[in-house]
């Protein structure tokens, strides 16, 4: 398949009066259309920044970034972005939150809203307010909102970070299902090695100060993917070693 994302020699520096932070250094990354990519690394290594560049939320950088062979001017509906917080508007019901995101000609398309809520398993919650939802349900509405806009690519920034392990695994399954059915390219940023290996056909390992890509690793867990068994363990161990060779501390403490 064709490459949907091509990043060449990309550098991003945050400048303030007091200091400069090189958030991204010399990033080279190509992503094939239809693939599922995980980006993993310790806190502050530039994962969010890279994702924001891809999503068009950060446009001030050096180097080249092409989305579908064209430069990116800013965010758009075809680059769906799931933030770490669900970011639902508290004053709108679930269905109106999705309606809010739709283009003008689709605002009245109730079937579209229903379809996408069904996709994330939230039929019947159309009229609920965000405060009436659990964290996992709210994040699923955010996913439905992004999907309703038929994005070419879905960018997820630690979307399940705040959720418990069971809810998290359920949502991972749902994401894989959606990925299979909708054939959307997905890029997920995560702290969690298991999550990165389980979801990503490709795992991008990043290291901090300055934020660099250390390694790009293919993972093949077969179809359907399994959380147990040799391929999973082998892939996970290899990623683990990436961090332990750097410093003899677990990733959670690699700040």
């Amino acid at each position: 398949m064709a490459n949907i994302i091509e990043i060449k020699k990309l550098n991003k520096v945050f400048r303030s009066k007091e200091n400069e932070v090189q958030a991204l250094e010399n990033i080279d990354l190509t992503i094939e259309e239809g693939s599922f990519v995980s980006i993993i690394g310790g806190s502050g290594c530039g994962k969010s920044t890279l994702l924001r560049v891809i999503g068009g939320l950060e446009t001030d950088y050096e180097g080249e970034y092409l989305f579908d062979n064209a430069p990116v001017k800013g965010p758009s509906r075809d680059k769906g972005f799931i933030f770490q917080d669900h970011r639902l508007l508290p004053w709108l019901t679930v269905e109106n939150n999705i309606r809010f995101s739709l283009p003008k000609e689709k605002k009245k398309d109730d079937a579209l809203i229903r379809e996408n809520l069904e996709l994330v398993g939230l039929t019947g919650f159309e009229k609920s307010y965000p405060r009436q939802l659990s964290g996992g349900m709210a994040q699923r509405v955010a996913i439905a909102r992004a999907l309703a806009n038929k994005p070419r690519i879905l960018l997820l920034d630690e979307p399940f970070g705040a959720l418990d392990a069971i809810t998290r695994m359920n949502l991972q399954e749902q994401m894989l299902k959606i990925w299979h059915e909708e054939k959307i390219t997905m890029i997920i940023v995560t702290h969690d090695i298991d999550e990165a290996v389980y979801l990503g056909g490709t795992v991008v390992v990043m290291t901090p100060r300055p934020g660099r890509i250390k390694r790009i690793q293919k993972v093949d867990l077969g179809t359907p993917r399994r959380r147990t068994g040799t391929p999973f363990t082998l892939a996970r161990d290899e990623i683990y070693r990436e961090f332990f060779s750097d410093a003899e501390i677990p990733i959670e403490y690699n700040i």
Binding site: G55, L57, R77, S101, R145
Partner: peptide, 8 residues
Amino acid sequence: ELAQVYEV
């Protein structure tokens, strides 16, 4: 920022 992503 959210509104930007959805081109509102």
